[in-house]
Design a protein around this nucleic acid. Structure first.
Length: 924
RNA sequence: GCAGGAGUGGCGGAGCGGCCAAACGCGACAGACUCAAAAUCUGUUGGCUUAGUGCCUACGCAGGUUCAAAUCCUGCCUCCUGCACCA
């Protein structure tokens, strides 16, 4: 069976009739979008998940009578595509092998793919075809690329709107940087893919003489009161640098890195050995307090790495195990004056904390690896549970004191801040050490602005978030966001309007583009030069400057803007934004922020839906595992409906889902089963089996709308696919004359958001008019929900099951099976107990109704344990007739004559074991 | 380090105070069909037991609340994800 045949057929029909190209007016509307793809590779099935959920959302909205817009475009902004094209031109073996073996690109194409534009076109075509083959109900007329001139104009307008409100600022910025490549370095540019995280540390100045200082860098400026000496590697070279009026000493290697951060005039080099033995002054942060302002010695320390930090280290033996051990090894502990500056719970009495922890771990010498352990242990205690125990900041928690002391040192001119690569050194792929570079004229979008944050939160508070438990993540991110660098030096995209040599950075040009979709199909017919700031002001905000020439009343451009404004106002606000869960920390908050700043409240987005990832046979999909299943390949292999369902139906929205080939095969086979039922497309029957099946269906139809609204993908899939499937199998076994026409019609439409092609095929096979995907969602018929019919079938299947169970023990094939239906007295006891959830209620009922008290109390006792969980039951007559009706079916199933009797008839010692809903069985 | 999340059967994963020995799927086993296989169907899949509706032991570990806990509370252990200029 090849599902592709009818899938392609219906895709063509849908496209020919343009049913996914909605008018920009009329009736109820819904506007849904998902993040546009970045076309630097073909899509794999993982990409299919978000779009499939989006499509299901859109399709359900259509069944509910909405005019639905689902547009798509391509995000090409940034450097990766350019870098990739460059690699193609250089004939990079690894990349070309991926092209050939994973992406299946013909080698004849390689030449032209060296051009970034061709690369974009190639992969975007690939992606678009895949989306069409998946049956996504996208309006492709609105497609654009983010390097299009029209879009550029729009983004420039956006930047201007932000700047007007003071939300675009300029300032200095620290970047991880490779001096050899002359480029910014991020985690995938480093050896071992280490993230070059930038950290701020305090650089403290120790006065050597006049205005000459040794500069040490430290994570623990709060220990300044306890510094006893300076460590200097005797084999290193120091450099003297003039910064302002000061002359600063740094380790030579350290200066090479730090020189990218601030201006300084290199005065010369000094061998470190020349300084050893001299003294420096501890910054006089608080006279007479600890070692503050005192003279301390410079000691030799071969362990100091001249390239790290500033290459010069301050020593605090009371709190730093390394310093303590080093002094001990040198035999100089007695010559210095350690001071305890921090107190914490469990701090040793009469000992220095570092000494204590060193002794506890019996550390022998500096080379002992336990020093590291001791350092971590002590630091953890002091940093998180500790407080200052000296000076004006006494009693203040360590982490706060760190800040306060640093600012005080800065204010007295004895410290400044430097930025270093955390957990360094980190090396660029070219081999060079990554440094921190300061950029002075960087542009930012100021997400740190507090009134903007408040606005963004206001916007968020009005939005529905699915799943709702993501809300605190958004709030935390909104709080945490600060200035975001919004331009880059190179890459595809939009020139930044205030400095056209720069490009608007990718996460900044994808925040309000949903508004662009509402008119993109019209804008593309216009000249980009017409898309002025004034034009967009009118289109999106309805604003006209009083003396505007081009937009004055009656001008052609004003008319055009008016026409487009109506379309924009029709579609906006956006009803739902769909995305993978990974974007909760960046794109989605930006989306909220920017909408809240630029658009009035009535055009703020209504909801966000996020979903988890797709795993491949339990593992993360990745090029290195070689387990990527390209979307189009998967469609060819299994069919679009199978992939749609496999990627979406197996897990809750926010959970990761697993793609397994064996499951996909199972889905495909079940689809075949549903199709085979078309042979039974007769008008409805009215047998118990028919009532039962329609009851089950209507129950599902009743539950469905709430599930579709909350994106309960797993449960919908479970219910309409797997459950329906096994119920149909039971039905086919039970029904003498299966009649499934109206059942299949309703089912196909209700499930069409998941499997639109199958639905269309079934709909037309049953002679339906129009398209299945344009019908109204089938309303549940409450009167068809028949609890008795469902209970009846449960009893029948229970009898079949129990009889088989007993048969195994019976030893031989029975020729007769007697079924005893429990009497009405038991039912009375049962119902009374069920209602009151109490045994006495049953006994009382028995008394009042003159029942056999011995029997009644024994029965009541047997129900006692599950008195809280008794389900509904049928009356004796109902149960009797259900079983009588089913007796020929059961006889056939069990290959034995089945005789239904009432418990009251007796006739067998087992007959008394009958319970309501659980008849007693006797095999003969 | 900070923030967030998760630990259930052979596996994936439901359940979030009582119809739970635990949905559904996958896998495994048995049976039917068949010359045989695949596919399909039917059943079994914690232990013990009765010719079935019974009992016991289970939901990371240790306690607690409750008539009742996988579900609520406390502590501990383990694992995962994110931490920005990157699409």
């Amino acid at each position: 069976m090849d599902l592709r045949n009818f899938e392609e057929k219906w895709q063509k029909e849908w496209a020919a009739k343009g049913i996914y190209e909605p008018a920009d007016s009329g009736g109820k509307k819904r506007f849904y979008t998902a993040a546009f793809p970045y076309p630097n590779s073909p899509q794999h099935i993982g990409h299919g998940r978000t779009y499939t959920i989006l499509d299901i959302h859109a399709r359900y909205a259509r069944l509910c009578g909405n005019n639905v817009l689902l547009p798509m475009a391509f995000h090409v902004t940034g450097t990766p595509i350019i870098a990739m094209a460059k690699k193609v031109r250089e004939k990079d073996a690894e990349l070309l092998s991926i092209f050939k073996n994973i992406y299946a690109i013909p080698e004849s194409k390689f030449e032209e793919l060296g051009d970034p534009r061709e690369l974009v076109l190639y992969f975007s075509r690939e992606i678009e075809e895949g989306m069409k083959e998946m049956g996504y109900s996208i309006d492709w007329r609105r497609k654009f690329y983010t390097f299009d001139a029209h879009f550029n104009k729009f983004i420039q307008w956006q930047m201007r709107k932000l700047k007007e409100q003071g939300l675009i600022i300029q300032g200095s910025h620290f970047l991880s940087y490779c001096p050899s490549d002359n480029n910014v370095v991020s985690s995938h540019d480093t050896k071992g893919d280490v993230d070059p995280e930038i950290e701020e540390v305090a650089a403290i100045k120790f006065l050597l003489s006049d205005s000459e200082y040794l500069v040490t860098s430290t994570y623990r400026p709060e220990t300044i009161y306890g510094v006893t000496n300076i460590w200097l590697n005797p084999d290193s070279t120091l450099v003297k640098v003039r910064v302002g009026n000061d002359v600063l000493y740094f380790g030579k290697g350290a200066w090479d890195s730090l020189s990218h951060q601030f201006e300084g005039e290199l005065l010369g080099e000094v061998p470190a050995s020349k300084l050893i033995g001299k003294e420096v002054q501890v910054p006089p942060i608080e006279e007479g307090c600890g070692n503050s302002g005192k003279k301390i010695p410079i000691l030799r320390a071969p362990f100091v790495k001249p390239g790290e930090g500033t290459g010069i280290v301050m020593s605090v033996p009371a709190h730093a195990p390394y310093d303590y051990v080093a002094l001990r090894d040198l035999g100089k502990l007695d010559e210095v004056n350690p001071v305890t500056v921090l107190d914490f719970e469990g701090a040793p009495k009469g000992k220095f904390p570092a000494q204590d922890v060193i002794e506890k771990h019996s550390v022998e010498s500096q080379q002992d690896s336990k020093v590291e352990l001791a350092t971590k242990e002590l630091y953890k205690k002091e940093a998180h549970g500790g407080r200052m125990s000296i000076g004006e900041f006494s009693g203040i928690p360590t982490l706060d004191a760190k800040e306060k002391i640093t600012s005080k040192l800065v204010s007295i001119g004895r410290a400044f801040k430097v930025h270093v690569i955390a957990k360094g050194p980190v090396f660029c792929r070219c081999g060079e050490k990554v440094v921190v570079k300061k950029v002075d004229d960087q542009w930012f979008i100021n997400y740190g602005d507090s009134s903007w944050k408040a606005k963004a939160k206001d916007c968020l508070s009005r939005m529905e978030l699915i799943p709702e438990n993501t809300r605190k993540d958004y709030l935390a991110t909104i709080d945490w966001l600060k200035e975001k660098a919004c331009t880059r030096g190179s890459g595809l995209g939009t020139p930044f309007p205030f400095d056209e040599t720069k490009i608007v950075e990718p996460l900044s040009d994808s925040t309000i583009y949903m508004a662009f979709y509402t008119v993109s199909h019209e804008l593309s017919k216009m000249e980009p030069t017409d898309l002025s700031e004034e034009f967009f002001d009118y289109l999106f905000l309805g604003k006209v400057a009083p003396n505007s020439e081009s937009m004055k009343e009656g001008s052609p451009l004003r008319q055009k803007a008016q026409e487009l404004r109506e379309k924009f106002l029709y579609w906006y606000p956006l009803d739902a934004r769909h995305s993978g869960a990974d974007l909760v920390r960046n794109h989605l908050p930006f989306f909220v922020f920017n909408h809240s700043a630029i658009f009035p409240k009535e055009n703020w987005p209504k909801s966000i839906v996020v979903n988890g990832f797709v795993l491949m046979e339990g593992k993360k999909m990745s090029k290195s595992f070689g387990n990527i299943l390209p979307l189009r390949k998967a469609i060819r292999e299994y069919g679009a409906d199978v992939i749609r369902f496999s990627v979406v139906g197996g897990a809750e929205l926010s959970a990761d889902t697993d793609f397994e080939a064996s499951v996909a095969v199972g889905v495909k086979e079940r689809i075949g089963y549903f199709l085979s039922l078309l042979d039974y497309a007769k008008e409805d029957g009215d047998s118990p089996a028919d009532c039962w099946l329609h009851s089950r269906l209507n129950r599902k139809l009743k539950a469905a709308p709430a599930l579709y609204d909350s994106m309960g993908m797993r449960e919908l899939g479970q219910m309409f696919f797997y459950e329906m499937y096994s119920e149909l199998q039971w039905y086919m076994k039970r029904a003498q004359k299966p009649a499934l026409k109206s059942f299949l019609q309703k089912w196909a439409i209700a499930f069409s958001p998941f499997m639109p092609h199958l639905a269309e095929e079934i709909w037309h096979s049953l002679g339906g008019e129009g398209f299945a995907v344009e019908q109204a969602f089938p309303q549940a018929d409450e009167s068809s929900i028949d609890e008795s019919a469902e209970l009846g079938e449960e009893i029948v299947s229970g009898v079949a099951h129990d009889a088989q169970m007993i048969e195994e023990r019976f030893g031989k094939k029975p020729s007769k099976i007697y079924v005893y239906v429990a009497d009405s007295q038991k039912r009375g006891v049962y119902s009374a107990m069920r209602e009151k959830k109490d045994m006495r209620a049953g006994i009382e009922w028995a008394k009042e109704n003159n029942a056999d008290m011995g029997k009644a109390s024994a029965f009541a006792k047997s129900l006692m344990k599950k008195v809280h969980s008794l389900g509904p039951i049928l009356s004796e007559d109902e149960e009797f007739s259900v079983l009588s009706d089913a007796s020929s079916f059961l006889s056939k199933e069990l290959a034995a004559e089945l005789i239904v009797r009432r418990e009251t008839e007796g006739g067998h010692d087992k007959s008394g074991a009958a319970a309501p809903g659980k008849p007693a069985l006797v095999l003969e």
